[in-house]
């Protein structure tokens, strides 16, 4: 038995689906080589096989967007993955021992990392290990850990005071089993929402880093770098900024909507709306 599809889930799913599709197809086919510099086709207008035109180096915008989707997803998955894998257990551990020293330690270190701007961290890592997609992803991931840990802790605290956790303890369950069988499934929907929101933030962060020159290196296409390169032509050829900007906005919107929609969809209590009499 599954819940009704809601509008947010549908729109979010379609937007995210488009990004994923573009990224997957780009492995096999793009209209043109997105990295091919073509002096003759410089600032080519849309049409004639170039759906969205070409940039100042003559590279096809549409092809760049497709491959850029790949970068975007790659960054999002790795960054959110790091944050979820590190942050969730930390948050759960803190939530399951609310009065212990462990909880204090985790949450204070968390505050410390949280207080440190993600972009600054990325710039520092970039300066030390060299700027690139990987350093950007790690920096964004590390900076997102506290968000996950906090959400996981808050949700765990709520689950730990429920009767079913008490019932599980009375049944003889130990802490690890309670963590995996009761806490994790019940905070899952909250984590999924957090993941999609973090995914959206990671996309923005990668775009910002690439825009600043600390993210994806040329010639790998990235939406953020496309924006940066279009900067000087913003008034003469606005379409060069419009398309990557639109792609970023829609992808971020898509992930946010998907997260909200999934939360409602996955909640068994909301699945069946019972009329109370």
């Amino acid at each position: 038995m599954r819940g009704r599809m809601n509008a947010g889930l549908l729109v979010g799913g379609v937007l995210v689906g488009m990004v994923v599709l573009a990224a997957l197809v780009s492995f096999f086919w793009t209209p043109h080589d997105p990295t091919l510099v073509d002096a003759a086709g410089k600032l080519r207008e849309p049409g004639d096989g170039y759906l969205l035109g070409a940039d100042k180096f003559g590279r096809d915008t549409f092809s760049q967007l497709m491959v850029g989707a790949r970068t975007t997803l790659y960054v999002g998955i790795v960054a959110v993955g790091i944050a979820a894998v590190v942050g969730t257990p930390l948050g759960m551990a803190a939530g399951m021992t609310p009065r212990g020293w462990l909880s204090e330690l985790i949450m204070r270190v968390n505050d410390l990392v949280f207080a440190f701007p993600a972009l600054l961290l990325a710039v520092m890592l970039g300066a030390v290990y060299g700027a690139g997609t990987l350093t950007a992803m790690i920096a964004i991931g590390v900076a997102t850990v506290p968000a996950f840990a906090r959400v996981a802790r808050a949700a765990t605290l709520q689950v730990m005071v429920t009767d079913y956790v008490l019932a599980a303890r009375a049944a003889g369950r130990r802490r690890p089993a309670i963590a995996f069988r009761h806490v994790l499934p019940n905070i899952g929907s909250v984590l999924i929402v957090q993941a999609s929101v973090s995914f959206a933030i990671a996309i923005l962060a990668e775009a910002a880093l690439s825009f600043l020159g600390f993210g994806t290196r040329p010639p790998t296409p990235s939406w953020g770098r496309m924006l940066q390169e279009s900067q000087e032509l913003l008034f003469s050829t606005p379409r060069l900024a419009l398309w990557p900007g639109l792609a970023i906005a829609l992808a971020v919107l898509g992930f946010n909507l998907l997260g909200d929609g999934l939360r409602d969809f996955l909640d068994p209590k909301l699945r069946r709306i019972r009329a109370e009499g």
Binding site: T162, D163, Y164, L166, A167, A168, R181, H182, P185, N186, P268, K269
Partner: peptide, 8 residues
């Protein structure tokens, strides 16, 4: 309602 884990 609250003593049975809703996801099991």
């Amino acid at each position: 309602m609250s003593s049975l884990d809703p996801r099991m």
